[in-house]
Design a protein around this nucleic acid. Structure first.
Lengths: 343, 343
DNA sequence: CTGAAAGCGCTTACAG
DNA sequence: CTGAAAGCGCTTACAG
């Protein structure tokens, strides 16, 4: 793409204001050590000329950037788009630019995208999305982020990872426990779990919470089928079919995200199964549409927008001696998709 | 944020490969005029050292960038997150970086964000989201984009604007006509329209299509109330309440986007009105969740992901003499939220 | 408080 | 085909 040559440069405003570019630079960047009168004159001149600093030149000269790199699995997925919304909001407030990419949930692509962010010399990287239970999958990314971090870059992840960096940690275990307790409290005992890959820490944590609740209620964990499909609406539909075929006496389905719950509801409707009279269904995340479904979805609310915002906040702070962990609560939201277990 | 000093520079790979930095630069960027043997050696060395060019230095020296700026109203909104998904996909394929911002549907913020993208010297800007019927609202943005464009920057918008640049244009008029014809074909005559601000070109175009169909069916346009609320789920709920209060005999509600339709369905359910038996409801856009609602939403499909992808495609081509217009079709998708008009 | 000058890491005419 | 050198537009020690 072609050059942007017509824009005024720092030297143009310096000339117009009758100062050196050093002074102009200081006045504009707010560096102390310029008399207020001069600074004002320079700023006025810059505004008049419509001057905006070339960020590339600034980054190159200063060796630092105000750009935040955001890595998500898939921006079309509401979970991530809500996180991104929080990131963009705070970034804009702080006058920072956001560079974004998605990985399609592929660790290889993720690694490559992180490398590309490092190459473009972003100042901070926010990685959103579940980590992997198997640490070796994340090792190359971990290495890359360490080098970045050692060189002064800031890193924050959203969700549990083996990455040794600042993290925003949703209460997945507690959320899993809460939703399972809710279902158990309604008298359900023939329960099925619908989940995405159990290789994801998010899934593992939510499952742990569910198992704790089952154990506490005296339900044998082995009696609760854990049905693994894609972590999407299509996966929810497929999972629902498997429940109906292989576990026809099930009275409650706990889906480990809202997407799967939505797919499950859709499939149950197709099959003529009424929710919650015949089968109760729960989700996880509380994406924006969850409350407008029919029946409105009982789920676990995670404050996605806030999680994105707080991750950016972490990158804005000075790094701590040890990685920070910011826990965000999960809140059970009871709506219409759950009801008493049928007799 | 602090410097990224540990990364190898071009001179490091040049030294290691025993060539000048000029040759190294050419070999790495694929500029012709380097013997293949040398080029290979340089590339191997670069890979060994984990070299990645500093994009800021490259941009500054070459006067061009491969970064694409994406401006959306609100990334948390599925309409925009699906467009963004298409943008990110193509950008990644082309090895381009995407800088993103959202404007909260505020023309002032939009202008400011466009300025900031120009300042950071992106190579292309994609603006997604409706234009305004009143051209004066877009004038400052138009000026800014013209300067950018004159200086060699590439611009593409998604949706009708008065911006005089390449555009991806969804068939809003045709879509409006199709959905209205569908509703009329089911025998509905007491129809209400739920819409966001009529100051948006998207709304104006969809309304035009609806009016054409009404006229062709001999229904007086004046008899069809156009209820204006926020272009969101909450707006759809508010609109539904107004329909029930002020136009209680309505048998079909045409909402001008899916978000409003979803809110409307939710409110009708709360009010004990059954869809489609008592009232039919239609949406517009076909966001991913539309097919999984209950009842599944009859709507007009716009290929959002593709629209994003094609907008990027436009910026990748050489500019034409006149602005290009890429029309994308709208497709009526009949599902379960519409049925025959009650007798 | 202010300015002259070096330097950030590249690309690209210009010579050879 | 290859290299020495200028220059992109800033920031920031270093002097004064």
């Amino acid at each position: 793409m072609k050059p942007q040559t017509t824009r005024p440069r720092l030297i143009d405003v310096a000339d117009a204001a009758g100062v050196s570019i050093a002074t102009a630079s200081r006045a504009l960047s707010g560096t102390p050590g310029v008399s207020e009168s001069l600074a004002q004159r320079v700023r006025a001149t810059a505004a008049e000329l419509g001057y905006a600093a070339n960020l590339h030149a600034r980054s190159l000269a200063s060796g630092s950037t105000s750009t935040i790199g955001l890595v998500v699995h898939e921006i079309g997925d509401p979970y991530f788009s809500e996180i991104a919304s929080g990131v963009l909001r705070i970034a804009a407030d702080q006058g920072r630019t956001v560079q974004i990419c998605h990985t399609g949930r592929d660790p290889q692509v993720e690694l490559q995208q992180i490398r590309s962010m490092v190459a473009s010399r972003v100042g901070a990287i926010v990685v959103a999305g579940s980590g992997f239970v198997d640490p070796s999958i994340e090792l190359p990314a971990r290495r890359e982020l360490e080098v970045f971090s050692d060189a002064g870059g800031r890193v924050a992840v959203i969700g549990r990872h083996h990455l040794g960096v600042d993290a925003v940690l949703p209460a997945n275990v507690e959320g899993g426990r809460a939703v399972a307790e809710h279902v158990l409290g309604l008298g359900h005992r023939r329960i099925a779990v619908l989940t995405g890959s159990t290789g994801l820490t998010t899934v593992a944590d939510r499952l742990d919470g569910i198992r704790e609740a089952l154990g506490a209620a005296g339900v044998a964990v082995a009696d609760v089928p854990v049905i693994e499909e894609a972590f999407t609406r299509a996966g929810g539909r497929a999972g629902a079919r498997r429940v109906l075929e292989s576990h026809p006496r099930t009275t409650a389905v706990i889906a480990l995200n809202d997407d799967m719950a939505i797919g499950c509801l859709s499939e149950l409707r197709t099959a003529g199964v009424t929710v919650p009279t015949q089968i109760s269904v729960t989700g996880f995340d509380d994406v924006a549409v969850a409350g407008d479904l029919s029946p409105a979805l009982t789920t676990v609310r995670l404050p996605m927008v806030e999680m994105g915002a707080r991750a950016v906040g972490l990158t804005l702070k000075e790094p701590g001696k040890r990685p920070r962990r910011l826990r965000v609560p999960a809140e059970l939201v009871v709506r219409d998709s759950t009801g008493p277990a049928p007799a």
